[in-house]
């Protein structure tokens, strides 16, 4: 018995707590994990819907700026989203609508064709870089490729404005310059994000499909005639 009592001595304090019957059991149940910063910043339950949407839009806008200045490369990779790519892709496809002879077989790309080229193209490029042993996750790469369409979408908008003034040689030259520069910009920006994930002896193999992808999109924009 004595040995038993001795053995239970370390838990003496605990048994005292459980025995006391007159005190009602109360207290805080708290998860002993450090407070996550995200919860402190915004609790999204009781905020207006406007703020929620604006916050997401602001995040998308921030990433647009990252694409325009591709040197600060971590943010686009850290928290990816597909809202921006969707927005850009739909805008591009809508702007490419109403092209030459829509009813004709020989016309420009349809809405669905643009959509398929952008999404399947970026999925294939992502698979290609994963197969080559890239370290980026699938959606990170998809996000980067989608966001880097931004210069080309801007070029499309510029082209439509230029085409309003006429379809002469001057406008064709302006469009050529705009599309070429935005194509270079897109390729450069996406390369800045994607190339680091590859071993150096395979960089060119990853960059080439990206180049081809933006080249084809640039070609679609350049050949657009209302």
């Amino acid at each position: 018995m004595a040995s038993l009592e001795e053995a239970s001595k370390p838990f003496a304090g605990l048994s005292d707590v459980s025995i006391s019957e007159d005190i009602p059991v109360e207290g805080d149940i708290s998860v002993p994990v450090g407070p996550s910063r995200r919860d402190d910043e915004f609790s999204t339950l009781d905020e207006p819907v406007k703020e929620t949407i604006l916050r997401d839009l602001r995040a998308v806008g921030k990433k647009f700026i990252h694409v325009l200045y591709p040197k600060r490369s971590s943010a686009l990779l850290r928290d990816w989203d597909l809202w921006g790519p969707l927005l850009l892709c739909v805008t591009l496809a809508l702007l490419l609508q109403g092209g030459a002879a829509d009813s004709d077989d020989q016309g420009g790309p349809q809405f669905a064709e643009v959509f398929v080229i952008v999404w399947f193209g970026s999925i294939i490029i992502t698979l290609n870089s994963k197969l080559l042993g890239g370290t980026l996750s699938f959606f990170q790469s998809l996000c980067v490729l989608g966001y880097c369409i931004l210069p080309l979408t801007v070029a499309m908008a510029v082209c439509r404005i230029v085409l309003l003034s006429g379809t002469g040689k001057v406008s064709a030259a302006i469009r050529l310059v705009v599309v070429t520069s935005s194509f270079g910009w897109s390729t450069f920006a996406s390369t800045a994000f994607l190339a680091d994930s590859q071993p150096s002896n395979r960089k060119a193999l990853v960059v080439y499909p990206v180049f081809l992808f933006y080249f084809v999109i640039g070609w679609m924009i350049l050949t657009f005639t209302p």
């Binding site: 030459a100 070609w219 679609m220 050949t223």
Partner: peptide, 24 residues
């Protein structure tokens, strides 16, 4: 693309030729 460009070069300057991208 080069088929499209060559088609364009061939017909360039001719009347009633309208350029189409021939995406098909």
């Amino acid at each position: 693309i080069s088929g499209n460009i060559s088609n364009f070069l061939l017909h360039f300057g001719k009347p009633n030729y309208k350029y189409t991208p021939e995406f098909r």
